[in-house]
Design a protein around this nucleic acid. Sequence first.
DNA 1: CTGAAAGCGCTAACAT
DNA 2: ATGTTAGCGCTTTCAG
Lengths: 341, 341
Amino acid sequence: MKKKLSIVDIANALNVSKTTISFILNGRAQEKRIGAELVEKVMKYVAEVGYKANSLAKSLRTGKSNTIGLMVEDISNPFFASIARLIEDRAYKNGYKIIYCSTDNDTQKTQDLINMFRDRHVDGYIIAPPEGIEEDIESLIKDGMPVVLFDRHLPNVSTDFIEVDNLFSTYNATRHLIDQGFKNIAFVTFASHQTQMVDRVKGYQDAINSGGLEATVKEIVFNQDEALIMNPLRDFMKANPQLDAILFGTNHIGTCGLKIMQELGKKAPTDIAVISFDDYDVFELHSPPVTAISQPVEEIADNVISVLLEKLNDSSVSTKPQSIILKTDLKIRNSSLKGVS
Amino acid sequence: MKKKLSIVDIANALNVSKTTISFILNGRAQEKRIGAELVEKVMKYVAEVGYKANSLAKSLRTGKSNTIGLMVEDISNPFFASIARLIEDRAYKNGYKIIYCSTDNDTQKTQDLINMFRDRHVDGYIIAPPEGIEEDIESLIKDGMPVVLFDRHLPNVSTDFIEVDNLFSTYNATRHLIDQGFKNIAFVTFASHQTQMVDRVKGYQDAINSGGLEATVKEIVFNQDEALIMNPLRDFMKANPQLDAILFGTNHIGTCGLKIMQELGKKAPTDIAVISFDDYDVFELHSPPVTAISQPVEEIADNVISVLLEKLNDSSVSTKPQSIILKTDLKIRNSSLKGVS
DNA sequence: CTGAAAGCGCTAACAT
DNA sequence: ATGTTAGCGCTTTCAG
């Protein structure tokens, strides 16, 4: 029914050249000194018939698609879901659409996805990069595509990124455990060479060293299948009854840890004190509430989108890449307090 | 550097017409009886130089964008995030990209979003529709767009939808509470006329009636700002100390309910038994674990995507719209068992 | 101030 | 079996 009408249709209907229509529609009437009455007439007619420019044709012509590609690790992870939500809002508000995908931290998959995005002519990229993707990102940048990394960065790639102070975050959390008097503190995390993960381990180790304690780091290989995370984790916890505190490196592994503790009938903080990276409802509502390193998701999203929009607008001005490091907040709750039950 | 090369570039390089290239690339070589050696030569060259068709141009020409528009209520809600994740996977596997957005159940926003999607020439729509969007959806369908609704449907719009058996789910959950011996059972939900919500209330009421008890339904106006959900909820719970059980209508409100119980120092099931719609980690890990009505997210996603792909493929065959109703699973945990502490 | 015309990269009738 | 050519709907230079 709503027969798609094109710019020529409306040009014909009004007996004007389509060029003129195009100028008017793009707000260049002033500049082109087009009669105010004509402008009004056109605008009125356009509104009346509900004409909408075909964005595909426009994109083909202009090379801009008004689309941003967003690549997160896993959209169903609450941390990434919240960020995606916030970015989505800001992007739509600025006339951009988001095409998203989950990388699963899989290099091959991410490469395919980047190609897909290129294909689609997305105008900009927001990426939480997996390992081994350096070259692809670099080639993107070399081709002049605006790229903003977040949550982590690639040490050898010079581009803008937004992340939190991971090193201090785990240092601080570990110090908190030490100050509470815990002696056998483990750090349990996913095996990864990503910057944020490396920093988190280092922060833990620095604190352990500063306290003259012994470090215990358990790295678990990430897997989509939760059982394959639970099993090694369970084995580890059973094999290390001497531990009196655990710091978990991500919300996902922290949640798995809590499930195991529930299974084994271990209570925090009496049996084992617990802290996890990334705060969310599960930790807040747990009994006892779980101390967590809370990332400023809003701030992250805001920074990501504003840096990207900046690059999108002054494509010419190639300023120094910005590295924005945000502070986290250690939400101290009962799970890490000695002498609380 | 990677100078975008077009189909003509490769046609020239090989001294062949671009039509031939186009046919070969689209797998119509057989059909067009193009020489096998030529085909191979072209394929080889294409792979070598890494030629990628410009999907924008292709879309403009063919009218297909290989994009699906996905509209959920809120991508940061774990239920929708999981579904989105699953749909994303299936869609990519079938060569479709997903453009998504959160409607916030806001009719106006959803209308804008639908227009945006139309603009973008998405090939199909997956929508968890807010109230008042009937006309827009109908116009979409009238224009021949494949539309699949999920999580709820629009009673007066005849199209495919996938949802769960909401009525039986809350009926069953309420019966469970009654069987456990609870007498003052409230249903707390978001104020909404959406089908799934109406059914959930009705299921509760049917069960209450069947048990000869008195119904207490509390509807809370949805708001982005969590405090505006917590406040009326807190007031309600304080004002109704006689309640010995509450059934929450969604995971979000269930989570808020748990937070309030924590604030007020109320324990389930001794002070108040609790069941919530939508299972997730929070409920599983809570102390005590919370009984929840678990929706089959994988099945929902699978059905949604296969129905949509079906419509995308036989656009001609306009079979009867399918209504797929899936079963939920009442995961009984300690929060709803009498005589457990 | 307004219009004609040349493409953006691709597909598909319609030749040949 | 392969090439010619006309658009898809839009923007933008260049002429009036």
